[in-house]
Design a protein around this nucleic acid. Structure first.
Lengths: 236, 236
DNA sequence: CGAGAGCTTGAACACGTTCAAGTTTAGTGG
DNA sequence: CCACTAAACTTGAACGTGTTCAAGCTCTCG
């Protein structure tokens, strides 16, 4: 891959975006681009990293969807999160140098991988990059809010859909019509609901014309109503 | 306050510990100590920061206990966390330069405050400090695990007590006997349980001789049993 | 001693779970 | 192209845990 490609490729990465907007010279930017490792395509079901493995790199999702999960004491899967294009996985592995969860590709995934050590070193020379990293980490701290609460199944589901919608929109995609890469079971697991409950909520939403969902295709017909439902969780 | 005092004071801060163990020279260390602002005593019920305020500093708790919370859409309080001595508040405020929650003193609190901007700048020159900051942030990402799950009230409560015990032990205090700075109501709120439910769980634990708790004093008589109960949540 | 907040206790209720059976879907080989 | 299979999803009914509501208790501090 030549420089041009790399440059183009990396504009979708949060890191590069941040640094480019800081007005660094091309030589410095190149240092960042050298760290980038273009990984993929990773096929559905393949692991990106596994719990307990040594941490060495964080990665920005380029394409596809990644699921993170752990197996609890009874060896049942617990879904921790979903990562869409533009989002970064591995940040929770820094603190004790081991990945604390599995990361699995839900569909065909392309990644932008960075050696964290080298990136941190570079961050010392590029204040913008350091700030960006701190921000990225800080943002993830409060992220679990969706799960962190005794909300109704309807509210949880609405909040999930709204969040997904907003994240899609941030990538410039449609906010009201998208394709879910994850199964109902995974969503239910993530929302800490029984699959049966989620199924019933989806049905109710459909009968109330809030959404139209066939299998994986989803359309949010009344985003405003969903946002209203999700208010207690998302607070905006 | 003279330098000696400051030095002594700061040995309990995670930052200083990290940097001292890196073998920095005294001049560099002093740069870090200059950033420290010694705040307190803050009286029970006083706010350390409020939601929406501009972020400028993070702070390590020196003494006492801090509660973080927000008010949800229905204007009911939602407790997000408790911070014991040695723990750092404000990390979740970095990403958009506003505190996303309130921080309240639950008893008399002493703080070590750092301008984050200056600290980040210093971190560029001190790789050990930068690493420490990244670790601190990364550690908080997965921290909400206690709330993030559809666990039984007993398991939640056990996990809460065990976590508290471990955090106490880390400060060199007794792991089995301590004084809770927070009210039952706050604990219940934090664990997303009704106060009534928590009360019943405490009663059950006492009748099973797992704990002895009078008002605020708590004694964990069978830490092993509690840890077993909490296993599904804490995973060790 | 009295007032008020915090905590406890009991009984009815509700939401989501569980279990069991049925339906749809996607993937496979004849 | 269709039949077959396994997995995912849906539907219904009984159940259980935690909530809610209402009342009573107990500390603490004026």
């Amino acid at each position: 891959m030549d420089d041009g490609d790399e440059m183009h490729f990396c504009t979708t990465c949060a890191f590069s975006q941040a640094c480019q907007s800081q007005g660094y010279d091309k030589a410095t930017l190149r240092k960042l681009h050298i760290l980038v490792e273009h990984i993929g395509p990773i096929k559905q079901g393949e692991y990106i990293f596994r719990e307990g493995e040594d941490f060495n790199a964080i990665a920005a999702v380029q394409e596809g969807t990644v699921k993170t999960c752990i197996f609890d004491a009874e060896n049942t899967e617990k879904v921790l999160g979903f990562f869409l294009p533009g989002e970064v996985i591995g940040l929770n592995a820094i603190h004790n140098s081991k990945y604390p969860c599995d990361a699995v590709a839900l569909d065909t995934v392309m990644l932008c991988r960075f050696s964290f050590q080298k990136m941190a070193l570079l961050a010392s020379q590029m204040p913008g990059l350091q700030t960006q990293l701190f921000r990225l980490l800080s943002r993830d701290i409060g992220k679990a809010a969706l799960l962190t609460g005794d909300y109704r199944a309807e509210q949880r589901t609405a909040a999930f859909l709204v969040t997904l919608s907003r994240r899609h929109a941030q990538s410039g995609l449609s906010a009201t019509s998208f394709c879910l890469a994850m199964s109902r079971t995974d969503i239910a697991n993530y929302l800490r609901l029984a699959p049966e409950t989620l199924s019933r909520v989806f049905k109710r939403f459909q009968s109330e014309k809030l959404i139209r969902a066939s299998r994986r295709e989803s359309e949010l017909c009344e985003l405003a109503s969903l946002e209203k439902l999700a208010m207690p969780i998302l607070r905006n």
